Amino acid sequence: MDETGKELVLALYDYQEKSPREVTMKKGDILTLLNSTNKDWWKVEVKITVNGKTYERQGAVPAAYVKKL
């Protein structure tokens, strides 16, 4: 869990989004888990830093590609 009490997951593999509802992640990324009720796809929040600014993006990733921490 992070400092706000939200559950975290670890990306076990790289994943490139294939639709606007998904998010890209790299192996080793730590993501915030938002919903894991679907056994195949979990909704997560990814933090992306671009030019020193951090953005948050929500989307789905394959459940088999992440592990709860």
Rank of each mutant, 00 (worst) to 15 (best):
A64M: 10
M25P: 01
E45P: 00
S19L: 06
Q58H: 08
Q58L: 06
A60R: 14
S19A: 07
K27T: 05
W41E: 02
E17I: 06
V9W: 05
A60K: 13
E56F: 15
D40V: 12
T4W: 12
K67Q: 13
L8C: 15
R21E: 14
P62C: 08
K43T: 15
L33W: 01
A64T: 09
T24H: 03
K27Q: 08
R21T: 13
E17H: 08
A64W: 09
E7N: 10
S19I: 04
V61D: 02
M25I: 15
D14I: 05
Y65T: 08
K67I: 14
L10Y: 10
D14W: 05
L12I: 10
G59N: 00
V23F: 10
L34K: 05
L34R: 02
G52C: 08
Y55V: 13
L33F: 03
V50E: 11
V23P: 01
T32M: 09
W41S: 02
V66T: 01
K18D: 05
G52V: 02
P20K: 09
L12T: 02
L10D: 01
K26Y: 09
P62L: 07
E7A: 11
D29T: 06
G28K: 01
V61M: 02
V50I: 14
K18H: 07
T32P: 12
V9Q: 00
K68F: 08
D14T: 05
V46T: 11
Q58E: 08
R57H: 07
E56L: 15
Y13I: 09
K43D: 14
A64V: 08
K6G: 11
M1I: 13
V61C: 06
K39M: 10
D40F: 15
Q58T: 11
G59K: 00
Q16I: 14
E56S: 15
M1R: 13
W42F: 06
L8R: 11
P20M: 08
L10R: 08
P62T: 04
T32G: 06
S36T: 09
L69H: 04
K43A: 11
I30W: 04
E3K: 13
D29K: 02
T4K: 13
A60V: 15
Y65S: 10
K26M: 08
L12N: 01
T37I: 09
V44Q: 00
E17N: 06
L34A: 02
G5V: 12
K6L: 12
Q58C: 10
I30H: 03
L69D: 01
I30Y: 05
K6E: 09
V61R: 00
V9E: 00
I48E: 09
S36Y: 06
A60F: 15
S36R: 08
M1E: 13
S36A: 11
K43R: 13
Q16W: 11
Y65C: 15
R21P: 05
K43Y: 15
A64K: 14
K67M: 14
T32C: 11
R21F: 14
N35L: 06
K26P: 01
S36H: 07
K39I: 09
Q58K: 08
T32I: 14
V66K: 01
K53S: 09
Y13H: 11
Y55D: 05
L8I: 07
T49P: 03
K26W: 06
G59C: 06
L12K: 03
N35Y: 04
N51S: 09
T32E: 07
V9S: 01
M25Y: 01
K67A: 10
T54D: 09
W42T: 01
K43Q: 15
L34E: 02
E17Y: 03
V61S: 00
P62V: 05
G5T: 13
M1C: 15
Q16Y: 13
T37Y: 09
V61Y: 02
A60E: 15
K68Y: 09
